[in-house]
Design a protein around this nucleic acid. Structure first.
Lengths: 106, 106
DNA sequence: TTGACATGTGACCAAATGGTCACATAAATT
DNA sequence: AATTTATGTGACCATTTGGTCACATGTCAA
């Protein structure tokens, strides 16, 4: 499976996106801590985290008997740049407006 | 299922992303035309197009015996703005640099 | 060192997904 | 009118997915 496909598939599940949101709010959480935020058994969360790890969206480090999970936004940036950007171009943003104004364009 | 979840799930399949790419390159194609670009039966393509339609990524219009398919990038923009943007911020772009410079920030 | 705690593995299961086919209908062509 | 062309529906099937559980291992604390 291609890298970006793994990322898209990892993002396709709402539980996994919620896990990313949790890690975005605060990094370095343990499995049990993440489990406590979800209405799901520890094993379900483990599987989801594994999918996220294989997509490179989460990086984990073992510390004693705990496993600490960290968010890695790089894959999201990659699919953004290589794929999504193409479909979201063409909108004038405030910044682009500013730039055009400075350059004397209408 | 929530709207953005439908979009993420629709984007999770490489065949469907390829269909979007085809429609991005040229709009208004018929089912048979799209089928001819894929190593898959017409029925498989129909199912994928249906998923894309239900996510709002493709809009179709019947014309005689043909069905014309059009790309609608709005849902991609929405998940971009509401979700992906959050993870892709923090990169200094040329435009942000310019804005900061104008405002006298370092 | 004994027990509690944190994580891991493999079996297992139901439901969703991705795909095919037989058949059907509607529209254009000849 | 007869035929071809374009699309639609429902049954069907294999595989993947999302989830549980029993059990096992490693690590910290009393």
């Amino acid at each position: 499976m291609a890298d970006d496909d793994r990322v898209f598939k990892a993002l396709a599940d709402p539980t996994r996106r919620f896990l990313l949101d949790l890690l975005f709010a605060r990094d370095g959480r343990t499995l049990t801590e993440l489990e406590s935020e979800l209405a799901m058994s520890r094993f379900g969360v483990m599987k989801h985290l594994r999918v996220l790890e294989e997509a490179g969206l989460v990086v984990a480090r073992r510390s004693g008997r705990e496993k600490l999970h960290f968010l890695n936004p790089v894959p999201i940036r990659l699919i953004h740049d290589r794929w999504i950007d193409k479909y979201t171009e063409g909108r004038t943003s405030a910044l682009v407006d500013l730039k055009n104004e400075l350059e004397g364009k209408p």
